[in-house]
Simulated assay, not measured.
Amino acid sequence: MMDIHKLKAFVAVIEESNISRAAIRLNMQQPPLTRMIKSLEVELNAELLTRLPRGVEATEAGKALYQEALTILAHAQAIPKRVQNIAQGMEGQINFGFTNSVGLHSFLPTLLRRFREQFPAVSIHLEEDGSSSLIDSILNEKNDIVFLRKPAPISLGLTSLHVLDEPLIVALPNNHPLATKKDKIHLLDLESFDFVLYRRLAGQDLFDNILANCYSAGFSPNIVQKAPRLTSSLNLIAAGIGLSIVPESIKNFWNNQIVYKALKADTPCIAPIYAVYKNDRSNIRLTHVLSLLKSLEICTY
């Protein structure tokens, strides 16, 4: 293993082309410096310097060592700063997970943009998956924080932060009988119509939430088609196959041939969003994310 002090000494000698001047630069006596250089030559079994009448110059082997030494010393000099940056959450990687429907809400890109602006050296990894898989990813420490439509089970010992409540609205084909209704549509008014829903396997939390709202209103929706993704359900709605209940944020993605209406019910129809994570104070990058999330002024604590 190369001695950093010897490499520094060698670099000084090469750059000064003189052992005496190098010793002054290094604030040391000439004899110890000469012994260090000689020790390097013994270690490497190579002559590193050619002695001249008024100084020294690097041999071919010495020139090669000089270039390598500069790289090693630069890396060594950068290590403390990098370690400090990692410890302060200024470098490294942060891993986010989210369900498909949460990924459509504007708070998430806003959060990611602000994080990137403040911590540009931190790499951001994103993963979209179902809620069960995302909770497992927190337990297995694959993700640092995930965003779901319901809190994690209390028994798992995870922290669930209520981020926001998003209204649920009705998405209708533009030729639907209810499309011209000016007022809010009462949830029970949807009982006699066909539904298109986001498949439960892909969006369990949202699917269960929609059904629970329908049951609470007094009916079971007639589901004629299930879509693999929330956005793909819009194709089916536009085609006139049925209507759907969707998070309000979805209306920013498709307006062609679809009409969106507010819902009226005895109990407000909402789709909450939760941040789920391990309460680990040593995860400084996660602490930064939570601080930024709070600064968005959308969280309910």
Rank of each mutant, 00 (worst) to 15 (best):
L111K: 03
T71M: 04
N252M: 05
F98M: 03
L148Q: 05
Q118M: 14
N279Y: 05
V56H: 09
T71H: 04
I298H: 04
T300L: 14
R54F: 02
L190T: 04
E91W: 00
E57K: 13
R149C: 15
A275H: 03
N213D: 05
L111P: 06
L187C: 08
N27F: 15
E16A: 15
E16C: 10
I124H: 00
R149F: 14
L211W: 02
Y301E: 13
L158K: 06
L40Y: 12
S192Y: 09
N235E: 14
A23D: 08
I154G: 04
A12T: 09
Q93N: 08
D129E: 13
P167F: 00
F207E: 09
I145L: 00
E128I: 15
F193V: 02
R285V: 01
L178K: 07
N85C: 09
R199I: 05
P31I: 12
M90T: 03
N209M: 10
G218N: 07
I169H: 08
L156I: 08
G97W: 11
F96N: 04
N256D: 11
M28L: 07
A9T: 10
N213M: 01
S133N: 15
Q225F: 09
G89H: 04
R199H: 13
T300W: 02
M28Q: 08
D136H: 14
I4C: 01
E91L: 03
G55Q: 01
S132L: 11
I223L: 06
A74E: 12
R199G: 06
R54T: 00
G92L: 05
L48K: 06
D205M: 15
L243S: 02
I79M: 08
N95T: 05
P153M: 03
G89Y: 08
F253Y: 12
N235S: 15
S291N: 15
